[in-house]
């Protein structure tokens, strides 16, 4: 709809070089030990690796601990309302396909109050990088059950333990028509996290990355086993998957998985075992912003068109 670049930019070469620090926004106010810090660092690193122009990058979020993210990145940002990051991001990308759009959401934000938008955003398959920072709990409002809270885990709203088995965000995403990129990683696997973010950014379409994230205050032990013992985690490996030699050195339990195989992806997403890597990728799926691409018209052309319409309605 709008021109992808201003005349000023098109006319000159941009020889700026950005370091990680150039993307650092306000001082992050997350608790000490919060997994979000590691994710933020990984994102700063990604932006520097990709040399994304700060003015052409937009971080959109909802409400929650993880949704403070845009404030901590020196790009454009929109800190929205609870559960509604994806509609805002959709609007940004529809109006401005030239912008790089990132979305950060928490598990309550994405899989509970925003679940409807999540399902439909997957189906729209708009080119954006979507990070689900999943700590299995509501943190900002202080320890209420989220859809991904393990069954039996005691919270302030389900004091005798969460009643239901948790929702599996990977399975859910993989079940939606047009899901085109589904990966999982963890805040305590910095090298794998970085490689996953890079793959997600490179994907043309809706890249959904669930990042297992520690909350040292409310869910300190939920991922303890996986953090202590690398054997507990399966790393999905494949030449088309997430390639990271550092991860391979530590994580010996590897599962060979072709990310083109949706059925195997769904099977691997099941169960209690922690699995990280690229579950599924297919760039052949239609992208909504491409389907909806329109040819720009000048005001004069539009006036002429409406004049013709008025002729049809003329007395």
């Amino acid at each position: 709809m709008s021109s992808p670049c201003s005349l000023l930019e098109c006319g000159s070469t941009d020889d700026r070089h950005f370091e990680m620090d150039d993307y650092a926004g306000k001082i992050a106010r997350w608790c000490p030990g919060c997994g979000d810090h590691a994710i933020l660092a990984a994102v700063h690193r990604l932006l520097a690796i990709e040399q994304l122009k700060p003015e052409k990058t937009v971080f959109v979020s909802g409400i929650g601990c993880s949704s403070r993210f845009p404030h901590y990145v020196e790009t454009y940002g929109f800190h929205g309302i609870h559960g509604r990051a994806l509609p805002i991001a959709t609007g940004v990308k529809l109006a401005r396909p030239d912008l790089d759009v990132f979305v950060t959401m928490g598990d309550g934000d994405c899989t509970s109050i925003g679940a409807g938008h999540w399902i439909h955003a997957i189906r729209y398959n708009i080119d954006m990088t979507v990070l689900l920072l999943d700590n299995n709990i509501y943190g900002l409002t202080k320890k209420q059950t989220s859809p991904t809270t393990p069954q039996g885990f005691k919270t302030n709203t389900q004091t005798k333990g969460s009643f239901l088995p948790p929702l599996n965000p990977l399975q859910t995403t993989l079940g939606v028509t047009n899901a085109s990129f589904v990966a999982q990683t963890a805040d305590w696997m910095p090298s794998h996290l970085a490689a996953t973010l890079q793959a997600a950014k490179a994907h043309k379409g809706f890249s959904f990355v669930r990042i297992l994230q520690r909350c040292p205050v409310f869910t300190p032990d939920i991922f303890a086993a996986a953090i202590k013992d690398p054997q507990v985690t399966d790393v999905l490996s494949h030449p088309d998957g997430i390639q990271d030699a550092n991860t391979d050195k530590i994580y010996k339990s590897q599962v060979f998985h072709n990310p083109g195989d949706i059925h195997e992806a769904r099977r691997l997403a099941e169960g209690d075992r922690v699995r990280v890597g690229l579950f599924f990728r297919d760039e052949s799926f239609p992208r909504y912003e491409e389907l909806r691409q329109v040819t720009k018209r000048t005001p004069e052309e539009k006036m002429a068109f409406i004049n013709a319409e008025l002729d049809r309605h003329a007395v």
Partner: peptide, 19 residues
């Protein structure tokens, strides 16, 4: 959009970034 809430959310996102 998928619902009334998303409908205005998309409009706000678009307005924020453009016309």
């Amino acid at each position: 959009a998928e619902d009334e809430i998303a409908a205005i959310g998309v409009a706000i996102g678009a307005s924020f970034a453009g016309k």
